[in-house]
């Protein structure tokens, strides 16, 4: 494992912990898109189908369990927690799951490396992860009231994707036969979705003003 991959995973972990901590301590999920969180839970569930079958490393298994546990906990908090669920911006978070789920499923059935259930589900999770942030970005733009933690959450997620691209570049030059178009293209698209957010995030940071996205 190279430094970019490790840094990417740690940023990913930090993003999830920031969000979980925000929800748990402030008992509020305002500004957080339940749609995006549900999509991430599905991403992890479909990607880690073989978690107890295929063993890669202790590190991988632990991280997978953390991502599964945290994503389902966040969904549980927003949907079921007595206090937290009252702060959910339901009327603003209107993005339809199906608009993302269906194209990803069709694409995974058509473009995959191997037509088996496990592989198609894995490919589906890659495509879905690429676009799962969209409901969250739409919500941020709508509410215009972005608290620091939600901003940091999205920033860390974007940073994780950017670091994974560096990881692939590193692996491409250091490992033989390391060419994976599906993951790369989906990953690049996913990172590009954050470009706009990054721009405004750095602007607000540079000028030390509150982060606000243009309508």
């Amino acid at each position: 494992m190279n430094i970019f991959r490790l840094a990417g995973d740690m940023t990913h972990l930090a993003s999830v912990l920031v969000l979980l901590l925000k929800i748990h301590t402030i008992k509020s999920c305002s500004g957080v898109s339940l749609k995006t969180q549900e999509l991430y839970a599905l991403v992890f569930a479909t990607r880690y189908l073989d978690i107890f079958v295929t063993y890669v490393s202790f590190y991988n298994t632990v991280m997978k369990l953390i991502f599964l546990g945290s994503s389902f906990s966040i969904v549980w908090y927003i949907r079921r927690h007595r206090v937290v669920r009252r702060s959910y911006d339901k009327d603003q978070d209107t993005f339809r799951h199906l608009f993302l789920l269906l194209p990803c499923l069709v694409l995974a059935l058509v473009i995959n490396e191997k037509f088996t259930f496990k592989e198609v589900m894995w490919t589906f999770s890659i495509y879905l992860e690429a676009v799962a942030i969209l409901p969250q970005l739409v919500l941020l733009q709508r509410t215009r009231n972005i608290d620091n933690l939600t901003g940091q959450y999205v920033f860390l997620l974007g940073a994780y994707r950017a670091l994974y691209i560096l990881n692939w570049i590193y692996r491409y030059f250091t490992e033989e036969h390391y060419v994976h178009w599906i993951t790369w293209i989906a990953g690049i698209i996913q990172t590009l979705l954050y470009a706009d957010f990054f721009y405004y995030y750095f602007q607000s940071w540079k000028n030390s003003v509150k982060l606000e996205l243009p309508a």
């Binding site: 991959r5 995973d9 990913h12 295929t54 890669v56 490393s57 991988n60 991280m63 997978k64 991502f67 490396e113 191997k114 592989e119 894995w122 994974y164 990881n167 036969h177 390391y178 994976h180 993951t183």
Partner: peptide, 10 residues
């Protein structure tokens, strides 16, 4: 198998 080797990422 080639389809498996990139499954080592999260």
């Amino acid at each position: 198998s080639p389809a498996q080797e990139y499954h080592d990422e999260l």
